Amino acid sequence: MKRTHPTSLIACVIAGAVIGYLGELLLVTSGANAVVPPLSLPITLVGVAAIVLSLAWPIRRSVTGASTRRVDPFRAMRVAVLAKASSLTGAVVVGLGLGIVLFLATRAVVPNPGTLWLALATALGAAVMLAGGLVAEWCCTLPPDDDDEEHAHA
């Protein structure tokens, strides 16, 4: 499995922003209320980041030799995939939050400041989840072998 590339994260943020903005525009033009993310969403996103990091930390300790416990490689792969999924999902939700903020900020009628703060808090919570996923993904990578470096230079 390859590490998450920055271009895929940027594409996910842009796609999320477009979906968030156009989704709000579609709702408001059809006569429905704009969707405002609840306060529990950014709290949950930060919680998911903490859980992913707590799952990846023992793997990092084992990889670096700080722990003598052996880690199941299947568990390590599952945590790595969870970390990658967390970073990509965090990128999409960052875009959604920013798209909602952009939509609400560009309206002719000034929205309640609380709605802007909730959408911005969602984007910040998702950014924490994105960063946590990237750090956890880094924790699950193996350092290069000394034998591989010797063969590459020979």
Results as ranks from 00 to 15, higher is better:
S40W: 15
V52K: 04
A105L: 04
P73C: 02
I43F: 14
A108P: 05
I59K: 04
S86Q: 07
W117H: 11
A123F: 01
R60A: 07
A80N: 08
V79R: 12
L116G: 07
V110P: 01
R70E: 14
V94W: 09
L102F: 08
A123Q: 01
L53A: 11
S40Y: 12
T122I: 00
A80M: 06
R75I: 12
V71M: 14
P113G: 06
V48T: 02
G31W: 05
I43W: 12
I59G: 06
T115R: 14
S30F: 09
A121V: 05
S67N: 10
S62F: 07
N112D: 15
L41T: 08
L118E: 02
L96H: 08
S86H: 02
G95T: 03
V109R: 13
V35L: 10
R61F: 11
S40E: 12
A85P: 03
L26W: 14
S87V: 13
A34W: 11
A91Q: 01
S86K: 12
V28F: 12
V63K: 10
A83G: 10
G47D: 06
T29W: 13
T106L: 14
V28P: 00
L118T: 02
V36G: 08
A105K: 09
T29C: 14
G97K: 03
G90H: 04
